[in-house]
Design a protein around this nucleic acid. Sequence first.
RNA 1: GGAGAGGUGUCUGAGUGGUCGAAAGAGCACGCCUGGAAAGUGUGUAUACGCCAAAAGUGUAUCGAGGGUUCGAAUCCCUCCCUCUCCGCCA
Length: 423
Amino acid sequence: MLQVSYIRDNREQVLERLAVKNFKQPELVDEVIGLDEKRRQTQNQLDTVSSQSNAAAKQIGELMRTGKKDEAEAIKANTGKWKEEGKQLGEQLAALEAELQDKLVLLPNLPHSSVPKGITPEENEVVLENGSIPELPANALPHWELAAKYNLIDFELGVKITGAGFPVYKNKGAKLQRALINFFIDEAEKAGYSEVSVPLMVNAASGFGTGQLPDKEGQMYHVGVDDLYLIPTAEVPVTNLYRDVILKGEELPVKNCGHTPCFRREAGSYGAHVRGLNRLHQFDKVEIVQVVHPDKSYDVLEDMSAHVQSLLQKLGLPYRVLRLCGGDMGFTSALTYDMETWSAAQQRWLEVSSVSNFETFQSNRLKLRFRNAEGKTQLAHTLNGSALALPRIVATLLENNQTDKGIKVPEALVPYTKFEWID
RNA sequence: GGAGAGGUGUCUGAGUGGUCGAAAGAGCACGCCUGGAAAGUGUGUAUACGCCAAAAGUGUAUCGAGGGUUCGAAUCCCUCCCUCUCCGCCA
C-alpha cells in the first residue's frame, strides 16, 4: 500500500510511475488525494469539537467537586450539541477513511526507475544468461516421462487422493525433494539467513499484510470453517512475523529463510504448459526474506539475486535472469528479477525464482517500522525471493541430466541425496 | 468440546465513573558519582493522525476489538476476538 502523504506530495511522479506499470485507473490517484483532503478537514473539525467537549467535561467535574452544581448544569446544557456534532463528524470520518482505504489498496506499488516499460512477458529485459545449454539426444524425454520411467512421481495417484496438481513423489523422487530442501536451507544459512518454521495457514490480517488480500483472494485456498488461508508462499507467514513491530535500528537487516509447502489454486490455468511439474497446486519451496534499511534495499536485492544464482550454478543448471517489465510485475513489487532455467526437453525457459524489493509497500500495510538515526519511527523495506521452488528445478534436473545410464545427480546434491544416479 | 479465570505501556503490575496516557517497580537511554565498573542518584522513556514551513509546541484518538450508557469510561452494560488453568479427546 502506498503512503497517502507520498501520493499527496508527489502526484506527478506517482502518475508517471503507474503508467510504467500500465495501470488502468490513474484517476484513482486524484480520488485518493481528494478523499485525503476531506479526511483531514473532517478530522480537524472533529478534533475541535472533541476538544471543546473534553474541556467542558473537565470543567463540570471540577464544579461538581466544589459543589457548584448549578454552574455545572448550565454547562451541561451545551454538551448535547457537541455530542450530536461529534457523532456525525465521527461517522463521516470513518466513512471517509474506509473509502480512502478501499481506493488506496487498489493502487499497485510504484516501479523502480530501472523497470522497463512493457506489458507482456516478452518485454521483460534479459539481464544475463549463464551456463551452457545441454544438447540432448533425439530420444530425450520430458520430465513427466522420466518421472514415470524411473518411478519418481505418480501424478495419477495424486489425482486419486486429492486432484490434479497434487503429485505423489516416490522412492528417489521423494528423497530428491528432501535433499533439495536441505541443500537450499543449508545454503541460505551459510549466507546468513536464520531458519524459521512457520504455520502453513494464516489469518486474513496476514494475507492483507503482504498484499495477497484483497487482491489475490481467489488464488488462495480458504478454510471456511475457521476463516484461514493456506499459504501460497512462505513470504506470507515469514514477513508477517514482523507485522506491528518496531525494530531497533541495530536489528536490521533481518534475514530469515524457511521451507514450506505452498498452495495455489491457479484457477484458470490449464493446457500443455502446465503438464507434469510445470504448474502445481501444492509444491515445496525455500524462501528467503529480508527486512532492511531503505538505503540498503537495492543492494540487498542484488545480493539476494546473487544468492539464488549461486544455487543454480551449484546445481549446474543453465539459467537466465530477467528484469520484469512494468506490466509483468506483481502488484506489490517495485523491482523484480525472475530466474529461469532452461528445460532442455521442453525447449523452454521455466521460472524457478522471483526476487523482489517491495520497498515500503508491504511494511506500510504491516506497520513494520524501525527506529532511525534520529530516533523516529520509519517504515522498513521488505524483500523476498524463492531460493528455490522445487518442482521446476526437479523438472530441469531430470531433463537436462538424462543419459543412457540414468539421471546424473549434481555433485553438490550428492551429500544430501546419498546417491549419484537415478536409474 | 465442557467449566472457570483473565486481557492495562518494552515487561511485571496498580487502578471499579472526573484530579488517568494511566501509580509503582523493572528494563532501556542520557547525565552525575567512580581511576574504571557495580551500587547509588537525577532526568527521560508509547503509537497514530491532525494543525504549524519546520523544530518547538499543540489538538485528537488509543488500557484486546466494536457498540452502548453518561456532561465525562481503563473503570458500568452488550456483542465479538484472544490467552491461560482444569476436565475430555489426541499426534
